[in-house]
Nucleic acid binder design. Structure first.
Length: 522
DNA sequence: CGTGCTTTCG
């Protein structure tokens, strides 16, 4: 506790308070200390100083105490652009984007930081198209200049959306604007190109950098891993170590991911078990997830299960999902059922994610009665399924499709095209509808109907309708691509001579002349 | 003398 008054104690001035309060907000354990500093501010009548008020307001937003922040804001006799921006930032960070937007609209004056706060808020809340819309609005405002933070956020939004046209535009914009190309921007560029399917461009940006920090290396490594280029990821990783850069836990996640997608079991295990001895990084649950995925995918299910049972951390849904997903790939129902029992014993309330996978596992081997059972269980415990969704960018405009979409303005035309495409690839003998992964207990005909409505199929039909013959089609999907869609994409790439790049939840699939870059290992 | 924003993975 702070001692508020002692006879010999010198009274701190307003500068002291600003320093102390900002120092508090940089330390998560300093909430109480900061609050007593607030008390002293009032006692010493410094509340009317704008710098003191702003630092207090900012402190409350950093500790997610929005009532406190609001109180400081309301009681400040004068407010400037920093005051307003801090409050907007507070609401944006705690996810209340509506309130943030309302305040942003009401602010008497906005500068580059105010815009950055708003754009960052939308990116943080996963509202990437809204972030890009605000960037666009910002460009029309002559009174403000784009800064580094805005560029980084916008590139991150493009990366998440797979919006390569807009991403490239931003790259060109950086080069001709006054924004200095910083290490943050370079990292964001590498990440954007990699996540938009242009690993070649990502490499070009990376290779031109003379001094690389751990973020840039990590971006490059993770990008290669996502593209199934595990060997390249390992090679860049050893180059990084050779240059004396110490990996952080995210670098290691990236490398392990790469090993897992490329079936590099020995390399991945060796890195995992060396994390602590070599780099002093204690494996977190996500690293265990990678290891289990690596072993399970490669068919070493028992070994993967052993790792789960002996982990020093409580396994979470992600871990069980990795294990169950491997059981599905290798059609191991026995182990799948044991895992479900095991989860049920540990925590009977929260294993919804497992039931989706178990249901898929039963479906994969045609046990439709058990699929129905798992689905009933899911509705009983109220599991929410996130709807499948795919995006495609055509001429800089992002089009969004949901599974069984009926809302897109051109849905009739798209569905007609899709039927035509599916018929053509079936007739050529490259595609037989595969309904294994449809969750519903439907008739064969209905199942076929259901898979043909998957969002990535709608997106590819839209792409074939609206892009030039011979140009690649790029699609981003929120879930993992299903076996049937994977098979259809391979056939379409061959029959229509199109390169199709699909980024799903876990990696990239590049379809060319009937083959996929993942070699059907995903 | 002091205040607000940003990156790699889940």
């Amino acid at each position: 506790m702070l001692v508020l008054s002692r006879p010999n104690l010198k009274i701190p001035d307003k500068y002291t308070f600003t320093f102390v309060i900002t120092a508090c907000s940089r330390h998560p354990m300093m909430v109480n200390y900061g609050e007593s500093a607030h008390g002293m501010v009032i006692k010493n009548r410094y509340e009317s100083d704008m710098f003191v008020g702003n630092s207090l307001l900012s402190m409350y937003t950093i500790f997610s105490k929005m009532e406190g922040a609001r109180r400081v804001f309301d009681e400040m006799p004068q407010r400037d652009v920093v005051t307003w921006t801090s409050l907007v930032s507070g609401y944006a960070k705690c996810g209340d984007l509506d309130t943030a937007q309302n305040l942003f609209d009401k602010m008497p004056e906005r500068n580059d930081v105010s815009w950055a706060v708003m754009i960052a808020g939308y990116v943080g809340g996963g509202k990437y198209t809204d972030a890009l819309r605000h960037f666009n609005d910002m460009l029309y405002d002559d009174k403000v200049k784009v800064n580094e933070a805005v560029i980084v956020c916008v590139l991150s939004a493009c990366a998440h959306l797979g919006a390569i046209d807009q991403g490239k535009w931003v790259h060109v914009y950086i080069d001709k604007s006054e924004v200095a190309v910083s290490s943050n921007i370079l990292t964001a560029l590498i990440d954007m190109y990699a996540k938009c399917g242009r690993i070649d461009c990502a490499k070009r940006v990376f290779n031109r950098i003379s001094e690389r920090d751990v973020f840039m290396w990590t971006s490059m490594i993770s990008g290669l891993s996502m593209h199934g280029l595990g060997k390249d990821a390992l090679q860049i990783f050893s180059q990084m170590l050779a240059e004396g850069i110490k990996p952080d836990n995210i670098t290691l996640l990236g490398v392990l991911n790469g090993c897992s997608h490329s079936g590099l079991v020995a390399e991945g295990c060796s890195i995992f078990y060396n994390m602590e001895p070599l780099w002093g990084i204690v494996p977190k649950i996500a690293h265990y997830g990678c290891l289990i995925d690596l072993l399970g995918r490669a068919g070493q299910l028992i070994r993967a299960f052993e790792v789960v049972k002996s982990m020093p951390i409580e396994p979470d849904v992600v871990i069980w999902r990795a294990l169950l997903s491997s059981c599905r790939i290798h059609c191991d129902v026995g182990l799948g059922e044991r895992i479900i029992d095991h989860i049920a014993q540990l925590d009977p309330s929260n294993h919804g994610g497992g039931h989706v996978l178990l249901s898929n596992l039963y479906a994969a081997i045609g046990h439709w009665d058990k699929v129905a059972g798992a689905r009933n269980m899911m509705s009983e415990i109220g599991v929410e399924l996130s709807p499948g969704c795919s995006w495609i960018e055509v001429d800089g405009v992002i089009h969004e499709f949901f599974a069984a979409d009926r809302l897109h303005p051109r849905i009739v035309e798209i569905h007609k095209k899709l039927n035509e495409v599916l018929q053509r690839i079936s007739m050529k003998g490259f595609y037989i509808p595969n309904t294994k992964q449809v969750l519903f207990d439907l008739s064969e005909e209905e199942k076929e109907q259901a898979v043909s409505w998957h969002s990535e199929k709608l997106a590819v039909a839209f792409g074939l309708l609206n892009t030039e013959v011979g140009t690649p089609i790029r699609i981003v999907k929120n879930l993992r691509i299903c076996e049937d869609c994977h098979c259809a994409m391979k056939a379409i790439s061959r029959v229509f001579s199109r390169e199709i790049v699909v980024r799903d939840r876990s990696r990239f699939h590049t379809f060319r002349e009937g083959n996929c870059s993942c070699s059907d290992y995903w």
